[in-house]
Write a protein that binds this DNA or RNA. Structure first.
Length: 856
DNA sequence: ATAGGGTTAG
């Protein structure tokens, strides 16, 4: 328990009986401080009330003085003081009080000091005047004179609510929240009831020290005091609950407020954004617009932050427009929110525009732009900015460094990432946990797991996120053993895994094909008390689908919905892959119907439509694949790749090449996957010249580095053509050792060309080298299959099963699979395929009954 | 009374 909690407990009982003021009619309407208790009127007329004329003269002077001070015209107020002195008008304490109040408005320390000096000079009647003593404490507390404020406060003979409030506020502003709370308690012990000006400060201190209980007690106290309708008190309660992450409580306070102002709305908005509830923040902003609340810079900054997190392009743009319309100037905070938003959504030029218009830039703004450039891949510009920053003596801090490193991770920029790591060491920033996590993540995403491990091992302290980062790093590359080990290790070190840790372990198991272990881990998760979330389910669905357990994937998809989770884009992609895996056009169409009705096709997730195009092609219906492709409003590289490889599966090389041309016209650059599709299309269709031309293009025009699969296609093309010697030459010139698959395709070609000797040699070579390697069986089976020898192919599979060998998830029954898909295509003219299976009542996607294909 | 930039999972 926090020591202050004790302090609070000690005066808590006194609050159980409501203070008497609560019963007075005044308590409902909170009077302004000035009229509630004005020591000025107290003093007025006590000593100077001799004649009526003199009194009215003084009154008129006081009126003018007060007018000037309220307008911040301090110079003229001083002139008036001199005028009074020279004309012999008596200057009472109330004049000095007004002047001090003017200094407080203007936050002007030196003139206030002059007043203080005059007060002291005029002797004890002024110096020891309660009203002036209080005013001086308030003045020093507000105008950056903390030492003087404390000194005067300690010396003050009769403290009151005002001087207490000033001191508590001072402690708050200086960040001494505990002092503020102690002051709050002492004030009550002294018998002063806090007013509606102190309570906000006390709440602010509570949220700074994260004392939820104390804040609640103050809440109850405020209600008893009759501050239930005070906008100030209630707004600070909203802010307080929001700061402590309790948005339900904040909302409760917010809803019952009869009167709200911008600050109230802003507090709600800020609460939502700071608790990661960005969608709710957008809703609040919407309500504000509906209620015609004039937004402030705070409003816009928060909405921009939510928009950036949500990638809400339109909303962010709109709030920028609102800021312009409201005439809000570009101060540092608004400007940095805008730059952050524009960088996050990838509109770097707009961020530059805002940067150029910002009057006064600071470190945050520069840093934001630098990490925006890195994210956008404009490394030159980033370095340029970095050097300009150095000229202005501004440096990266841990916040920017973390975001730069994470941008390096996304763009796989190992070189820059290493420089960032070096920078963090040179500037002792690597102790920062966010920097450490992003360093580990950067090395992992750049494919250097050993360096990621090193960065993790050298970290001074480790939190949940750092553990998760390394677990996920191992999971990504399928090193499930290490991921699982770390999962137990973290618990031994007293760090409780969260759902992200579980999900990463599951992913690792799936990536390494340990489907049963993954399922087992999932059962453990369910009995652990942690709730599986959408990511968990999606990991399972995609994992099953990618490991050839399409049926289980679909079952999990149905189960997920029974548990009340709505499928999102990622889970839909997973289940579509499952349909592809089991080559079920029937299920695939059902999913397609579901997607259409849920409006998921227009979602900004292009993967959904890509997976459909892929599914239709691999389930044998190229027509529907093409149709889905054509209907997609946005066509990016992955979508083209899906259709090209779809054409390849069906040996439709002409179509694949035509699509490639079309891509080129649309200005879309091909990648290695595109060429895999094109080459395999050519090899399936036996287009020798075209295939070789594509291969040359890939290397010389597009500067892409061919992988084993590309070489494999070219080998097949050459071998099928009968050009075995060229094929062998190509294999021997590859920059890496040939795998069994490529030798297998050579083997198949040998058979076709009746090169029995070479064929036998290759077979012997493969089986002698790796007698227990299942891949050889797969290769042989696939070779038979490609040759149309289904029986031999099945027999080879049978032998493999007899030997107790399991097919490695990394390889598949490629050729047989392809033909299976083609087989399915011809068989799927069944009328049932047009039915859409969805339960009208529950909206759950219902799967029609068993539907298996035997090997042909 | 409210205010800007950061790290992990599908």
């Amino acid at each position: 328990m926090h020591p202050l909690q004790h302090h609070f407990r000690s005066w808590l009982p006194s609050l159980s009986t409501p203070p008497s003021t609560a019963l007075s009619p005044h308590a409902r309407t909170i009077p302004a401080r000035k009229s509630s208790h004005s020591p000025a009127t107290h003093v007025l007329g006590l000593h100077y009330g001799s004649t009526g004329a003199a009194q009215s003269l003084r009154k008129s002077f006081l009126h003018r003085m007060s007018f000037l001070c309220k307008d911040g015209l301090l110079g003229e107020a001083f002139s008036l003081l001199y005028e009074m002195e020279s004309e012999g008008v008596p200057v009472g304490p109330e004049f000095y009080g007004e002047l001090l109040q003017g200094c407080i408005y203007e936050r002007a320390l030196p003139p206030g000091r002059q007043i203080h000096a005059r007060v002291v000079k005029r002797g004890d009647f002024f110096h020891k005047n309660d009203y002036l003593e209080t005013k001086l404490v308030v003045f020093y507390a507000k105008c950056d004179g903390p030492a003087a404020a404390s000194r005067l406060f300690v010396r003050q003979r009769r403290r009151n609510v005002f001087s207490w409030a000033a001191m508590i506020g001072l402690h708050c502003r200086e960040g001494f929240s505990e002092d503020a709370l102690v002051g709050f308690c002492d004030m009550m012990c002294d018998g002063f009831l806090p007013d509606n000006f102190v309570i906000p400060n006390a709440l602010k201190a509570c949220s700074a020290v994260r004392l939820l209980g104390c804040g609640r007690e103050i809440h109850g106290f405020a209600l008893k005091m009759g501050f239930g309708c005070c906008v100030f008190v209630q707004s600070s309660l909203v802010d307080f609950y929001g700061k402590l992450g309790s948005m339900e409580a904040a909302r409760k306070v917010f809803i019952q407020m009869p009167e709200k102002n911008v600050v109230t709305w802003n507090s709600m908005l800020v609460g939502y954004t700071q608790n990661g509830l960005d969608a709710e923040a957008m809703k609040i902003f919407h309500d504000m617009r509906v209620e015609n609340v004039e937004p402030t810079r705070v409003t816009i900054a928060s909405v921009l932050s939510a928009s950036a997190n949500l990638q809400a392009l339109h909303e962010g743009r709109q709030s920028h427009a609102v800021a312009v319309l409201c005439g809000l100037e570009l101060d540092n905070i608004l400007s940095s929110s805008l730059i952050n938003f524009y960088c996050k959504v990838g509109w770097t030029e707009d961020a530059e525009l805002v940067f150029g218009r910002t009057l006064e830039t600071d470190m945050v703004i520069w840093n934001l732009l630098v990490s925006g450039y890195v994210r956008d891949g404009q490394i030159d510009k980033a370095f340029h900015m970095y050097h300009k920053m150095r000229e202005e003596n501004l440096r990266f801090d841990s916040v920017t460094l973390a975001s730069i490193l994470s941008a390096c991770a996304d763009t796989e920029n190992l070189k820059l990432g290493k420089e960032g790591h070096g920078y963090s060491i040179r500037n002792s920033l690597q102790t920062d946990l966010a920097v450490a996590s992003s360093t580990v993540d950067m090395y992992a995403k750049c494919g250097r797991i050993e360096l990621a491990r090193l960065a993790f091992d050298t970290a001074v302290n480790r939190d949940l996120i750092l553990w998760n980062t390394l677990i996920s790093a191992y999971a990504q590359c399928g090193l499930s053993g290490e991921a699982t080990r770390l999962f137990y290790h973290m618990q031994l070190e007293g760090v409780t895994p969260d759902i992200i840790s579980w999900n990463s372990v599951l992913l690792g198991l799936m990536r390494s094909g340990q489907v049963d272990e993954a399922y087992d881990m999932f059962s453990q998760l369910q009995s652990s008390g942690e709730q599986p979330n959408l990511v968990t389910w999606t990991t399972l669905i995609s994992g099953f689908a990618q490991n050839g357990h399409g049926q289980e994937a679909i079952e999990v998809f149905v189960l997920m919905q029974e548990r009340g989770l709505r499928p999102n884009a990622a889970s839909i992609v997973g289940v579509t892959m499952a349909c592809t895996d089991i080559a079920s056009l029937l299920y695939g169409k059902a999913i397609h119907g579901y997607i259409m009705r849920q409006g998921l096709l227009s979602s900004p997730q292009p993967q959904v439509v890509t997976s459909l195009v892929d599914m239709y092609a691999k389930c044998g219906n190229v027509y529907l694949s093409r149709k889905t492709f054509d209907l997609s409003p946005r066509k990016e590289l992955p979508l083209y790749n899906a259709l090209i490889s779809g054409y390849a599966v069906h040996g439709l090389a002409e179509e694949a090449l035509a699509l490639f041309m079309h891509m080129h016209e649309q200005g879309i650059k091909p990648d290695a996957i595109t060429f895999t599709g094109l080459l395999s299309a050519c090899s399936h269709a036996g287009l020798v010249d075209e295939g070789l031309e594509v291969f040359t293009k890939m290397v010389s025009e597009h500067n892409l580095c061919p992988c084993m699969e590309h070489y494999g296609c070219v080998t097949t093309i050459l071998a099928r053509q009968g050009n075995i010697e060229e094929a062998i030459k190509l294999i021997s010139e590859m920059p890496f050792k040939p795998d069994t698959k490529i030798l297998g395709s050579l083997l198949a070609a040998c058979k076709e060309n009746h090169l029995i000797e070479l064929s036998k040699y290759l077979s012997r070579y493969l089986f002698e080298r790796e007698p227990e390697n299942q891949v050889n069986y797969v290769t042989l089976s696939n070779t038979y299959a490609a040759d149309g020898k289904w029986n031999e192919a099945s027999k080879t599979r049978g032998t493999m099963k007899e030997k107790g060998l399991q097919k490695d998830p990394g390889c598949s029954w490629i050729h047989l699979g392809t033909d299976l898909h083609t087989f399915v295509a011809t068989d799927m003219s069944h009328p049932q395929t047009d039915l859409i299976y969805e339960d009208q009542e529950t909206g759950l996607l219902a799967m029609p009954g068993g539907h298996d294909f035997d090997d042909p």
